[in-house]
């Protein structure tokens, strides 16, 4: 099939970007979206044009590196699918495809479709962990976790940290990302000890990093390649509410 691509090109963080139009010809429907871009890039290199920069790594939908808004939809039209797992059979001959980077104040563009998502690392550093040190922990089976709780925690833990929730959110909020970690650890006895502190420090960090706040639009859930449920946002809010009577310490 032949396609027309409108791709965001931006030389560097401080440069002005714009959409540039390219033709993608002879595309097989068995290709992944990124393989289609590989083909386009090979063509560009041969013409002496700098290829389109885009983030990608594992190409099996788990590392969370790939990040493109395709026709206004983070990770493209197929539900619960990352760009690297999106295949061209989802498109048809003659389609026009708009490809833009994640848009968020917290995710400055580095080049073309590549953005800086280190803000999400900093959210995790604000409290997305159990502060256990290596060694000196009890036998794994001394901590009993009901199957349902373990499953719910796993539902939340599936987050790949790609940032599609932020890209999709009308408010540029990272609430689903934060909620998935808060939700996972709050469900487990190992994470309860720090639950109140975690929900406060992580949500405060979200504000500091320039993410918007959640106003319950749920575009995040629809865009999430792992289908993380917004019920974890409700859980985050609940955790925050329960943390109110407790002392709040500043991030150390």
């Amino acid at each position: 099939m032949d396609l027309t691509l409108h791709v965001w090109r931006q030389k560097g963080p401080k440069d002005k970007g714009r959409l540039t139009t390219y033709k993608a010809t002879d595309i097989s429907s068995d290709m992944s979206f990124l393989e289609m871009l590989d083909v386009v890039n090979e063509g560009l290199i041969k013409q002496g044009i700098e290829p389109i920069a885009f983030d990608h790594d594992c190409r099996e939908g788990i590392c969370g590196t790939c990040s493109q808004v395709i026709n206004g939809d983070p990770h493209g039209p197929q539900a619960r699918t990352t760009v690297c797992q999106l295949h061209m059979r989802q498109f048809k001959d003659g389609d026009e495809i708009y490809i833009e980077p994640w848009r968020s104040r917290a995710f400055p563009v580095i080049r073309d479709l590549v953005v800086d998502r280190s803000a999400m690392d900093r959210l995790m550093q604000a409290g997305g962990f159990v502060s256990v040190k290596t060694g000196g922990v009890p036998d794994a089976n001394t901590i009993l976790i009901p199957k349902d709780d373990a499953e719910t925690a796993m539902d939340a833990a599936e987050c790949i940290g790609c940032g599609a929730c932020v890209a999709a959110c009308p408010n540029g909020s990272a609430m689903l990302f934060v909620a998935s970690k808060v939700g996972q650890l709050a469900k487990l006895p190992q994470g309860r000890a720090e639950a109140a502190r975690r929900v406060c420090t992580m949500t405060d960090a979200m504000l500091e990093e320039g993410f918007g706040n959640c106003s319950n639009h749920y575009d995040c859930e629809a865009a999430c390649p792992k289908g993380i449920s917004v019920k974890f946002i409700a859980q985050l809010n609940r955790e925050y509410f329960m943390a109110l009577p407790k002392g709040h310490k500043e991030k150390n």
């Binding site: 848009r103 104040r105 009308p170 918007g212 639009h217 575009d219």
Partner: peptide, 29 residues
């Protein structure tokens, strides 16, 4: 204040943007 913070969170708008789940009512609160 919340709306202003959220507005600031996306300084560059999308050229194409789909509303996947959000409603007009929600976005115009």
């Amino acid at each position: 204040t919340l709306t202003l913070e959220s507005r600031r969170a996306r300084p560059v708008a999308y050229i194409r943007k789909k509303h996947l789940r959000s409603t007009l009512a929600g976005r115009t609160m």
